[in-house]
C-alpha cells in the first residue's frame, strides 16, 4: 500500500494502464470535447431553429461586422497552427520550443479577444445591444460563451507552457492543443452562422 500511496497522484496504477490504447489524458479530453459539442450544439441548434423561422433576422445579421469576424477566423486559424507546432515540438522533446509556440498561441488568443472587444464596442455603440432582439441575444450569448472558452484555453495554455518550458508534463501540450482546436472549430461554425448568412 505504501508503495502506491507515495506515488499515487502521477504514477498510480490507474494512470499506468492504457486498455483503450489512448492515454488517459487524451481520452478524457476527447470526452470533454464530446460534452462541449453537445453544449454548443444545443445552443447553435436553438439559434438555427429561430433563424430559419424568422426571415427578418437576415436584416439584423447584416449589421454584424464581417471584417472583424473574418479577422478573428484568421487569428484563430493561425493560433491553431501555433498550437499544433507546439505539439510537434513537444513530441520531439523540445519543451522550450513548445512553450514558445504556446505563448504565441496565447498572444493570438489575446488578439482575438481584443478584436472581439472592439467589435462589441462598435455594435453596442450603434445600438445593437443584447436586448435589441433575440438575434442579438443569441449573437452575444454564443460569441460570449465562445470567448469564455478562449479565455479558459489561454489560462490552461499559460499553465502548460510554464511546465513545458521546464521540460515537465510535455503530454499536456497536445491536450491543451486539442481543446484549443475545438474552440477554433466552434468559431469556424459561428463565423458563417452570424457573419456570413445575411
Amino acid at each position: 500500500m505504501s508503495v502506491h500511496a507515495a506515488t499515487l497522484d502521477h504514477e498510480s496504477l490507474a494512470c499506468r494502464r492504457c486498455a483503450s490504447g489512448i492515454p488517459a489524458g487524451r481520452l478524457a479530453l476527447w470526452w470533454v470535447v464530446t460534452s462541449e459539442i453537445v453544449i454548443f450544439g444545443g445552443l447553435l441548434a436553438s439559434y438555427l431553429l429561430f433563424r430559419l423561422r424568422h426571415v427578418s433576422w437576415g436584416e439584423e445579421a447584416a449589421h454584424t461586422n464581417t471584417l472583424a469576424g473574418a479577422t478573428n477566423t484568421l487569428v484563430l486559424l493561425t493560433s491553431s497552427l501555433f498550437a499544433v507546432l507546439a505539439h510537434r515540438c513537444a513530441t520531439q522533446g523540445d519543451g522550450r520550443g513548445a512553450s514558445r509556440f504556446l505563448r504565441f498561441t496565447i498572444a493570438l488568443g489575446g488578439v482575438f479577444l481584443i478584436v472581439k472587444a472592439l467589435e462589441y464596442t462598435g455594435e453596442i455603440h450603434h445600438g445593437y445591444t443584447l436586448l435589441r432582439g433575440t438575434f442579438w441575444s443569441f449573437y452575444y450569448v454564443a460569441t460570449g460563451l465562445h470567448a469564455l472558452h478562449v479565455v479558459a484555453g489561454m489560462i490552461a495554455m499559460a499553465v502548460v507552457s510554464v511546465g513545458a518550458g521546464r521540460g515537465r508534463q510535455l503530454q499536456r501540450v497536445e491536450l491543451v492543443g486539442i481543446y484549443w482546436h475545438f474552440v477554433d472549430v466552434v468559431w469556424i461554425f459561428l463565423f458563417p452562422l452570424f457573419y456570413i448568412a445575411k
Binding site: 476527447w30 459539442i37 450544439g41
Partner: peptide, 24 residues
Amino acid sequence: MVAAWFMHLAVERRLIWFLMITAL
C-alpha cells in the same frame, strides 16, 4: 481539416471518430 490534422483525428483510434459522430 482542423479536426483531422490539427487534432489528429485522422490517425486517432476509430472510437473517437465514433464519439464525435454520435455527439453530432
